[in-house]
């Protein structure tokens, strides 16, 4: 059957031209990709098929000779995934090669109906496998995008800020689950070590709900910080959350709690022997109205 492959090699230019014509009508999202880029990708893929080493056949998709083609398609579909193409649009890129290959097979076989049938089956099979491979790679690429975004969100959502020399704060925003709490705990403890902080304020103003699991995670974090020699202050507990905590029977008695972050900060300053005072300005005139009268 390798005569089909050699026919493809011989008619490479014709196939490319025909395929590009199909592609241009098939690919809908012309705003996302230019003619030039499409052309380069098509000729690259065709080259990967035509320049496959001797001994590779269209029947055997798992042949190592197809490895470059697969790799090329994998990067192509991964980039399509990030560009914002839909899976079917990505698969269409490969599928639109079919008609061009059919016409080559037809030219080759002439009136040999059996041979043409066999070739058609072969081309169908090969292109379908290719397009499945493309879809797989597309999904893989999109998975990676999602994973990266999750990671970034995780990092964004747990910033540890230094309020003062020796006082760090962790403003928590959003729902806490086990995975996130793990990150929160680690980054807080890490920050305590790095900044040599004796006080850590955990502010949960932005946490919408606190259930037993979240409370347990918070308590673990606080205990771990204590073991390291830092004191934790919990702040920003909203009235509803306070009610929930008591109804759930969570014991927060060993934890210092403050209603606002500012109160917690003041306590931390006090405990570290500091105090914030107002400076009286010397030239402060309070009654400009009287002067005019």
């Amino acid at each position: 059957m390798s005569d089909l492959l050699s026919a493809i090699r011989q008619n490479r230019d014709f196939i490319l031209k025909d395929w590009l014509q199909n592609l241009k009508s098939a690919v809908q999202r012309r705003d996302l990709i230019g003619d030039r880029e499409l052309e380069t990708q098509a000729s690259e893929m065709l080259a990967a098929i035509a320049e496959s080493p001797a001994g590779t056949t269209l029947e055997d998709f798992n042949n190592p000779g197809w490895q470059p083609l697969k790799a090329m398609l994998a990067t192509l579909s991964a980039s399509r995934a990030t560009q914002g193409f839909s899976p079917s649009e990505t698969a269409l890129f490969v599928l639109s090669l079919k008609p061009s290959l059919f016409s080559v097979a037809r030219k080759q076989r002439g009136s040999d109906a059996d041979g043409l049938y066999a070739d058609t089956i072969l081309i169908n099979d090969f292109i379908d496998k290719l397009s499945l491979h493309t879809t797989d790679s597309y999904i893989h690429g999109r998975d990676q995008v999602i994973a990266r975004q999750q990671e970034e969100m995780l990092e964004l959502s747990t910033p540890v800020v230094t309020l003062w020399d020796g006082i760090v704060a962790l403003p928590l925003i959003g729902t806490l689950d086990s995975a996130r709490t793990q990150v929160v705990m680690e980054s807080l403890l890490q920050a305590i070590v790095q900044t040599n902080s004796r006080f850590a304020i955990i502010d949960i103003t932005g946490v919408p709900t606190v259930d037993t699991l979240v409370a347990q995670h918070l308590l673990k974090t606080i205990t771990a910080a204590r073991l390291m020699g830092a004191e934790c202050i919990l702040s920003g507990i909203r009235p509803q959350i306070a009610q929930t905590i008591v109804h759930l029977g969570i014991n927060l008695e060993d934890v210092i709690t403050k209603s606002k972050l500012s109160d917690a900060f003041r306590l931390a300053l006090e405990r570290s022997g500091r105090k914030v005072v107002r400076i009286d300005k010397p030239g402060n005139v309070n009654s400009p109205v009287l002067r005019g009268a």
Binding site: M185, E186, L189, I192, V193, K220, A224, L227, M228, G229
Partner: peptide, 8 residues
């Protein structure tokens, strides 16, 4: 000087 990992 307990390490974070040890505390956890």
């Amino acid at each position: 000087g307990m390490q974070p990992a040890v505390a956890i």
